[in-house]
Amino acid sequence: MNAGSLLGLVAQRIALGLVLLLAASALIFAGTQILPGDVAQSILGQSATPQALANLRAELGLDQPALTRYFSWLAGALQGDLGNALSNGQDIATSMSHRLGNTLFLAGTAAIIAVPLALILGLVSVRYQGRWPDKVISGVTLATVSVPEFMLGYIAMFLLAVQFQVFPSVSTIYDGMSLGEQLQAIALPALVMVLVVLGHMMRMTRAAILNVMQSAYIETAELKGLRRFTIISRHALPNAIAPIVNVVMLNLAYLVVGVVVVEVVFVYPGMGQYLVDHVSKRDVPVVQACGLVFAAVYIGMNMIADIVALLANPRLRHPK
């Protein structure tokens, strides 16, 4: 094994991610093609004349074969051109970049709170395994995972916006707000998203560390007379990184692509709201573009998880 092999493995993962993304783009395109109805028809309505439909199809390039349209869509997407929305004619890339920025801001805020919190709670659970702190943490996180996120959203809204009026119930943000104001505005959706992903990450951290705690080198550490928390954080955690990173990345991806409902509940101008609006208008190009971005986020996060897991392996990082 030489130093090149780690680079090689990382390059392999990146290449695999790109191939996967290409496959996802094909699936998204194919999926929107087999939807019943026709874009021209849905724009012009039921009363359109056949001639008007044909003209519009030619204008939109819909008379070309599907493969040709796929490749021209893909070529456009690679250059940052995702086409125009059918419903309002706006450039999708421009209107989406703003929405995507908002979604990433919300997801990032939730992640900055949720990831360290999940790790700490996981460590504490292991430290007090089977005792009351462990049981309380497990019980609470399990409960927040089990409640549907729109329900959590309305509960949070009822308690913190209506009863105590700490945070606004509608998370409108616009240019010109200060960071503090923006954070204040997104406090409730961020809180809900933290609660949604916390349980999964915390439980995986706990399980991964407990698994490592069975190893012989943990006994060595115990026989060295180290404190239990030192054993867990210094000897167990570094060897549990790979499974933890995997589940963290999965949850971060979920924060971006899976929070459609939360955004809608709080009327937050993010990707989710954008997608839901345009699905209801049968705006196929926007749906395709959103699908592609979501797929890219998902694949990208998992690729990062794979790469971190490779880097965390001392045998690969420090070859013989």
Partner: peptide, 14 residues
């Protein structure tokens, strides 16, 4: 303490 299997008794990531 010196364990039977040093390969398992050392933390692989330190």
């Amino acid at each position: 303490y010196v364990a039977q299997s040093a390969a398992a008794a050392f933390n692989p990531s330190r």
